[in-house]
Write a protein that binds this DNA or RNA. Structure first.
Lengths: 265, 265
DNA sequence: AGTCAAGAGATGTATGTACAAGTTACCGTC
DNA sequence: GACGGTAACTTGTACATACATCTCTTGACT
């Protein structure tokens, strides 16, 4: 909010916000599609109609339509007006990274009990994954994650020291670690999740209350900054009955990912 | 190469192909990034320089840059020239759907032995997933998939009858089922993969040569047409040592998926 | 030497124009 | 009635221009 000095700009109307025109148009178009005002499967108004309605030139309208098209909400071609298509929206990064956010989106109450948080020296493997020399200090965080009070996942997370030291000023039993890191402006930008299956080890079995050797869904996660510097290396082990991962892809190339509870209720 | 007829169009140069200008520019820019001509991490030439070099206006240049930006090959901002970034390209749908294609991309020889292919009546669960009435005819295909001759995955696939009957004219031990279905113009358009972990059952253990109860990585796949009609319901069980799935996502929303061998070799 | 302001240059945004290329509907002809 | 051509309309592409906004450098002043 920097332009409150009166008479400074000419400003005039700027209906709602101070965003660029094509973004406001895109938001409005998306609203109309999702609200059903532009019914699915039917052609949307032509560009010239939209220009007339909003009193703009074709540029912003086309930019907005291109945005929706790349998001998959519009399909269509040359000569014929584009057709609206409702799609499941997804803002995967946050909800995919944060157990807390994910739990809330599926309507369950997240919980956690910290098993340990400690500064120690990096082992050979984690050092290699984090791009550190063996023996450099790192911060390890082990937490049992709960859904509605029931154990669902065991998280073993290793942070580089610069990021991990933030955790000593933070109670990992209350609130989301990721939210805290983002609030402290840690540059969490990119994550690679590697999914496989493992047999439960003794500690896994004990904390997750299953038998040793039972199958667990393991997700190893390497989170890096926008410059590609590794920040976190994690090993999450889910009870298969509590969570599954889904990938949806289409032949056109769009891909959305998600994490869901298994269907049994 | 269509422009050899003299004087037919005015055509002039049109360097290589007959594609729209911004697509040719985008391809050229991408080539320069991937060839290292525009080194990674360094700013690329400014828009006006590019306009001058190719003798075009800013429009097509900006369109091409926007294309690369959305593909993740360019990052950058306002006022400062964008920075090149090499990324792993991905065309996930084909390689993600087809075991055969995937195996080849990781440099291994795919193999398979068909356990059974049969027409039978849909069970309650598969009928529900495929949107059929219980008892309608479906085609079930069970195959053991191999990598370099070693068992890697057990595939249990159920096709709706209209698609499945194609398989009776086809030898599933040689060649890719998916390639065959696409060749026959089956409208495979969308797939939802649900990933979890299960304990190996008796048949799994026998065919994959592990002990019953050992953890397996299960991927249930529902493939649908572009109209959303279910075509295939599959249950693939991977040896965790032979394959893992990866998901990469960034805070900007781009997501790529892949299937890899585990690191041990 | 350090600091701040001005300016040059870059990208982002928006308008207007023009033409190419595809789709649809209409209408006259056979 | 069937066929084919044309006209109107739509989107795709391209160019020219203008201004806003941000970045970085330069240079003068303290």
């Amino acid at each position: 909010m920097r332009s409150s000095a009166p008479g400074c700009h000419s400003q005039l109307v700027k209906t709602s916000e101070d965003l660029p025109l094509h973004q406001r148009l895109g938001a409005e178009f998306l609203r109309r599609i999702e609200s059903g005002e532009w019914p699915e499967g039917l052609p949307v108004p032509s560009e010239s109609q939209l220009c007339a309605e909003f009193g703009t030139s074709r540029g912003p309208v086309r930019q907005a339509l291109a945005m929706l098209r790349s998001a998959g909400s519009l399909v269509g071609g040359r000569g014929k007006p584009p057709v609206a298509r409702r799609t499941t929206p997804s803002q995967p990064f946050g909800t995919f990274l944060s157990f807390t956010q994910w739990a809330r989106t599926i309507g369950r109450e997240p919980g956690q009990s910290t098993v340990e948080v400690a500064r120690r020296r990096a082992s050979a493997e984690t050092a290699a994954r984090l791009g550190l020399a063996e023996g450099e200090p790192v911060v390890e965080l082990v937490r049992l994650r709960l859904l509605d009070g029931v154990p669902a996942m065991l998280e073993r997370s290793t942070f580089v020291h610069e990021v991990g030291r933030i955790l000593f000023d933070f109670d990992p039993d209350h609130g989301s670690v990721y939210q805290e890191l983002l609030r402290r402006e840690v540059d969490l930008h990119h994550a690679r999740h590697t999914i496989d299956a493992v047999a439960a080890g003794p500690q896994d079995a004990d904390l997750l209350r299953v038998a040793a050797g039972d199958p667990l869904l393991r997700v190893r996660r390497l989170t890096t900054s926008s410059q590609g510097v590794p920040l976190e290396d994690a090993d999450d082990r889910y009870l298969p009955a509590m969570a599954t991962f889904t990938i949806e892809n289409t032949i056109e190339g769009r891909t959305v990912i998600g994490r869901y509870r298994t269907e049994e209720d």
